[in-house]
Structure formats: C-alpha cells, structure tokens
Amino acid sequence: MARSESFQCDVCGSQKNHNDLWWLAWTDCFEGISPGDDQPLIKLTRWQQRQAHEEGVKHLCGARCAGTLIDRWMTAQHEDPSAHCESV
C-alpha cells in the first residue's frame, strides 16, 4: 500500500502538491572560538523529501513565506541579541 504524505507551509498553511517547488528551512549554530561566541543561524535549501521529515525543519511554499520566516527569525534575534546556540 502506498504511503500518502501531506505537508503544509509553516507560514501560510498552504498544502503542498506533488509537483510544487517548495523550500526547507531550519536553525543551526555558527560556532565561535568559545561557546559564548556561538551565534544562531538560519539555513534555507530546496525541497528534499528525506530532509522534510527532520525534526525542526520548516516547510515553505515559496519566496514570500521564506522571507516572512526569515524576518520573524531576525526579529527574534534582535529582541535577544545576546542569545547563543541552544546546547543539545
């Protein structure tokens, strides 16, 4: 039996169709010389089915929603400029 998957844009809620060209985004850590120098960063890449299932990955339907997500992330970074990467 074939497995049916559905994905929604994490910004606008649109449903992904099979042939749609979507994007994936997630946060990561830019490591400084010492842990106190670590800086959060955001990454963006083309849709890859396998990575779409990874924890913490955001699904984005296009440039407008990618821009909105990045804008929200930047605003959060400005609200807490001393934020460092979360330790795992």
Rank of each mutant, 00 (worst) to 15 (best):
A52N: 09
A63I: 10
V88T: 06
T27K: 07
S14D: 11
C61R: 01
G13E: 08
A76N: 13
T27V: 14
S4K: 13
L60G: 00
R72F: 01
F30P: 00
D38Q: 13
G62W: 01
C61M: 02
W73F: 04
S14R: 15
E79F: 08
W73L: 01
F30A: 04
T45H: 15
S14Q: 10
G56C: 07
D71I: 05
S6E: 09
R46Q: 15
C9A: 05
H78M: 08
A2L: 09
H84N: 12
V88I: 12
S6Q: 10
C12K: 04
H59I: 02
Q77A: 00
G36S: 08
D37I: 06
T27Q: 12
L41C: 14
E31M: 14
T75K: 08
Q39K: 06
R46Y: 09
T68V: 05
E5G: 01
R46W: 13
Q51M: 11
V57G: 03
A2W: 00
H18G: 10
E86D: 15
W23S: 11
V88F: 14
T75A: 10
P35R: 07
S82A: 12
A52W: 01
H53Y: 15
A63G: 14
D10W: 00
Q39F: 06
E54P: 02
S4I: 08
C12S: 14
Q15R: 10
T27E: 15
D71A: 12
Q39G: 01
H53S: 12
R72S: 05
G32T: 07
F30D: 04
G67Y: 00
T75L: 09
A63P: 14
D38K: 06
L69Q: 03
D37T: 03
H78F: 10
V57T: 04
L21Y: 00
Q39R: 09
L41K: 12
G56F: 06
W73Q: 01
Q48H: 05
V57A: 05
E31L: 11
T68H: 02
S87Q: 13
D28H: 14
L60W: 02
S34D: 09
R46C: 12
V57R: 07
E5S: 06
S34A: 09
P40I: 04
H84Q: 14
C29I: 10
T27N: 13
W26L: 06
P35G: 01
L44V: 06
Q15D: 10
R72W: 03
P81Q: 10
F30Q: 06
